[in-house]
Each structure stands twice: as structure tokens, then as C-alpha cells.
């Protein structure tokens, strides 16, 4: 961050006051960092940290060779993982659509009451990671795929809802006005004026979220919500590092394939 202070005395980059403000900001940031660092590492056992490289070598040596015989056992959990992501995305999108219409300034039926509620639903869903939703749902409705699907759906509402309501607010008001002028009812204006305009965004957002959900659903099993994560948890518990390697490779492959598929779908639609 070396400013241009090595220039001649006459020309300065910013006014002295602004520069002072910015420098104070940087110093404050450094002080904050040091303070946070001390607070955070208060209970850290430095012996473990020094020992980490040895641990890393140890784990690494156990991870190879991968235990390929494990693959057949993983196929059913992988199918479950795909289902969690796909059904969860469908559920989330179905729930997100009405929320988005309530939250968009130009379609919300009551800007004073329903709009803040819809916005809160979106923020709440976005702030809480799907793993936390899964943790809660496993406690509530029991371990299994259903908890995973609901967790993915609940997390997707916020993401899809936010992007969709922004798309609704960006629609061309002239096209909507033209439909209104024909004497169409409110529902007809939505159907003919707004929906056609947001359709490309809708499909792009949904496939994008599906892609993210594939990643997220691979780890939901860690808290008991079904899928390949269950196998990961089981292998970690018995320290079967060779199996962990196989699972990670499988997850990585799935993620790459799903990213490619979603990119292709988005490309075809737009």
C-alpha cells in the first residue's frame, strides 16, 4: 500500500485529511487483527500445531493407496445424494417463487406487511447453512434422506428467492404497463407481463442452485441426513483413510460433472 508519497511536494494524491483517515483505518485494522489473533489463540495448544506436519505426513501415507474395492458400496449413497440435491432444489424453488413475488417491490401485494416478512424469510434462509438446517431437521424428524431434502430446500429458498426477486424488480415496466392497459386482472398481468420476462433468469438461477446443492448435499451425511456423507463419517470414525480417499475422489468427480451439466443447461436456455 505504498502511496505515491515519493512524488514532488506540490502534487498529492489525496487531501491530507482523507489520507489521515485512510491511514487511521489501516492502523485500526492491524490493531484489531492483533487483538483478535490473541483472543482466538488463547486456548490453542501450540504443541499440536508444531506436530501438525508430522500428522499430515502420517495421514497422507495412510490415504494412499485408495481402497477401490469400496466403490460398489458407495453407489447407493451417491444416488441418495443426487436425489437429496435434486428433490431439495425442486422443493426449494417451489417455495421460493411465491416468496420472491411477495418480496419484489413491483409485485408485492402489501409493501408494508408482507414484503418485510418475505425479506426476513430470505435473509433467515440465506444466513443459515444447509448443514445447520440438516442438524436441526435430523433432531426433529429423525436421520435420513428426508431431513437432507428439507434442509437443502430450506437453504435454497433464500438464494433463489433473492436472485428471483431482484430479477422481478428489473423487469421492463413498459411491457407490464401495456398488459395492464388491456384491462387484464392482476394475475393475468403477472402471467403475461412479468413471468415471460423472468423465465430465463428463473431457469439459470435454478440450475445454478442445483449445482451448488450437489456440493452441499455430499456433506449432509456428516450430521446424519443421508447420502455419501454418511459413508464419509463412518470411514472417518474407524480411521479408514483409504476409503476416505475414494469418497473424496467420487465427490470431486460428481461436482465437476454437475458443474459441467449446469453450465450446459444454462447455455442452452439463454
Amino acid at each position: 500500500m505504498s502511496g505515491p508519497e515519493h512524488h514532488s511536494q506540490v502534487w498529492t494524491y489525496r487531501t491530507p485529511r482523507a489520507r489521515l483517515l485512510i491511514w487511521t483505518g489501516w492502523v485500526a485494522l492491524v490493531a484489531l487483527f492483533v487483538w483478535c489473533w490473541q483472543l482466538m489463540t488463547r486456548d490453542t495448544i501450540w504443541f499440536f500445531v508444531q506436530d501438525a506436519p508430522r500428522q499430515a505426513v502420517d495421514i497422507g501415507s495412510r490415504m494412499v493407496p485408495p481402497r477401490w474395492e469400496y466403490v460398489p458400496e458407495l453407489l447407493v449413497p451417491m444416488w441418495d445424494t443426487l436425489n437429496i440435491a435434486t428433490l431439495g432444489t425442486i422443493g426449494g424453488v417451489i417455495l421460493a417463487v411465491p416468496v420472491a413475488f411477495l418480496a419484489a417491490r413491483n409485485t408485492s401485494p402489501s409493501p408494508r406487511l408482507l414484503r418485510p416478512i418475505a425479506l426476513f424469510i430470505i435473509v433467515a434462509s440465506r444466513s443459515i447453512n444447509s448443514l445447520i438446517w440438516a442438524l436441526l431437521l435430523v433432531a426433529i424428524i429423525g436421520p435420513g434422506i428426508l431431513a437432507g431434502i428439507v434442509a437443502i430446500a430450506l437453504r435454497s429458498i433464500g438464494f433463489v428467492g433473492k436472485l428471483l426477486y431482484e430479477a422481478i424488480e428489473e423487469t421492463d415496466p413498459l411491457q407490464v404497463e401495456a398488459i395492464e392497459a388491456t384491462g387484464a386482472s392482476g394475475a393475468q398481468v403477472l402471467n403475461y407481463g412479468i413471468v415471460p420476462q423472468i423465465m430465463p433468469a428463473f431457469w439459470a438461477i435454478s440450475t445454478f442452485r442445483w449445482d451448488i446443492n450437489i456440493r452441499e448435499s455430499t456433506i449432509l451425511g456428516l450430521v446424519g441426513a443421508g447420502g455419501i456423507g454418511l459413508k464419509l463419517q463412518a470411514s472417518l470414525n474407524v480411521l479408514a483413510w483409504g476409503q476416505v480417499t475414494v469418497i473424496l475422489i467420487l465427490i470431486l468427480g460428481t461436482v465437476i460433472v454437475s458443474e459441467w451439466v449446469s453450465a450446459r443447461i444454462r447455455h442452452a436456455i439463454i
Binding site: D172, L174, Q175, E177, A178, I179, E180, A181, T182, G183, A184, S185, Y192, G193, P196, Q197, M199, P200
Partner: peptide, 19 residues
């Protein structure tokens, strides 16, 4: 709404629903 049916309105070219 019923009366608006009796009034046709023509805008600038961009007022068709494009999609």
C-alpha cells in the same frame, strides 16, 4: 378493468412482451 377493455392503447415499439 372492465372499462379499460374499451380503450386500446398503442405505445412505442418496445411495449410488446418480448419473449
Amino acid at each position: 378493468r372492465r372499462q379499460r377493455r374499451r380503450i386500446g392503447m398503442i405505445f412505442q415499439e418496445y411495449s410488446l412482451v418480448e419473449r
